[in-house]
Amino acid sequence: MPLVSTAPLLASAAERRAGLGAFNLVNVETAEALVAAAEQTGLPVILQISQNCVAYHGSRLAPLARFAQALAEGSDARVALHLDHAEDADLAREAVDLGFGSVMYDGAKLPFDENVATTRGVVAHAHDAGVIVEAELGEIGGKDGAHAPGVRTDPDEARSFVADTGVDALAVAVGSSHAMTSREASLDDSLIGRLAEAVPVPLVLHGSSGVSDDGIRSAIRSGITKVNVSTHLNGFFTRAVRERLADEAVVDIRKYLGPGREAMTAETARLLRVFAEA
């Protein structure tokens, strides 16, 4: 089916107090794995293309968007397309014009007032096209060394930021860190609850790869709606590839990328069920 809008998926998950899985594609095989997991479970999925992914593929967003759209159209799964962690406002606007259902403009490095002003501009462009915007407030540790560990999102500041910008979802810093390869992060569920009460939009958990299943379930019950996972799934893909390449006779790319895709599909399906049943 055609790509679906992100907005109703978020609204439905928030109403049911369930988690909505949002996973980053890197290449053809990872995108196929994520859609296959949605097909297997019958649950919706948000395919995310990050600014880093765009840079990896020659700074060309359009071919990635067209592939994701074609993949969705060939599937019976509900698939939404999201631009993740765009620190470039122009890239966010391009994604809107390409038909993404949602974009994340990440101005967390900017001073508060500048973040508000730039985010407001992205929101205006997106809303004119019926696209929703996620933003980030309160630095989340581990992202390219730019975000300080231990920082937490302030509920009062969050309330003001959402009101001033008109964003539709808010990524918050509550104890997780990007790019963690072990699931040892401890989230502040009390803070999540206060943030959920402070703002009228769904909350987003970044850095979920470092959080255990039980930790994610608890975060969802406390008020998280959208759950972003990347590194954790990449680990399943990479381990399967590494195991296959232990056979030095293997040279056909398909012989090792295929098992990687299968491993990622299985773990993505498992996570989708964990989030939906929280």
Rank of each mutant, 00 (worst) to 15 (best):
L233W: 07
F236A: 13
S160N: 07
L272N: 02
V151G: 05
R244G: 01
G175W: 09
S218T: 14
A196R: 15
E73T: 03
D88G: 12
G235K: 11
N234K: 15
L81F: 09
V96N: 14
V96I: 15
V172W: 12
G207I: 01
G99Y: 01
S176I: 06
R78K: 04
V35K: 02
S160D: 14
T225P: 08
T118S: 04
Q69C: 03
V122M: 13
E267W: 02
Q48C: 12
L9F: 07
A7G: 03
Q48H: 01
P149H: 13
V54W: 07
E139V: 08
E267C: 09
L195S: 10
T181Q: 14
E114V: 00
E267M: 10
F23D: 09
R217P: 02
G207Y: 03
F100A: 11
L245E: 01
C53E: 11
L170C: 07
R183N: 02
S222W: 00
H125L: 05
F236R: 11
A278V: 08
T265R: 14
L3I: 07
R239D: 15
G193W: 01
L25R: 11
L83V: 10
E73A: 13
Q48M: 14
L170Q: 03
A72T: 00
S50L: 05
A173E: 14
R217C: 09
R217G: 06
V251P: 00
Q48P: 07
A269G: 14
E157W: 00
S177M: 11
G99D: 09
K226I: 05
S160V: 11
A11Q: 14
L191S: 12
R93W: 08
L272E: 08
S176E: 09
R261N: 10
H232K: 12
G258F: 08
R17I: 03
H125W: 07
S209T: 05
A129C: 10
V26M: 05
I46F: 09
H127Y: 09
A11F: 02
A38Q: 12
G42Q: 04
H232L: 15
F23Q: 09
M264F: 09
L233Y: 07
G166D: 15
A77N: 00
A129N: 10
K143I: 12
K109Q: 07
F237W: 11
G58M: 10
D188G: 13
V116H: 09
T238E: 13
E157T: 10
R194F: 02
V4N: 03
A72D: 00
F67A: 06
V204F: 07
S50C: 11
G74V: 01
P8C: 08
A38D: 12
L64H: 06
A129K: 13
G260I: 03
G74C: 04
E15K: 14
G142E: 05
A31C: 13
D189T: 14
G175A: 08
R66M: 07
L34K: 04
S190F: 02
R60W: 09
S190W: 01
A171V: 06
A72K: 01
G101V: 06
L187R: 08
G215R: 00
I49W: 04
R261C: 10
T225E: 00
H82W: 04
K109N: 04
H232S: 12
I253A: 14
D97I: 06
H125T: 10
L187Y: 06
V45C: 07
N228P: 14
S218I: 00
L191W: 04
S208H: 06
V45K: 00
S102L: 01
S50T: 15
H206P: 04
G42I: 05
D84Q: 03
L203R: 06
H125P: 05
N24M: 03
K226T: 08
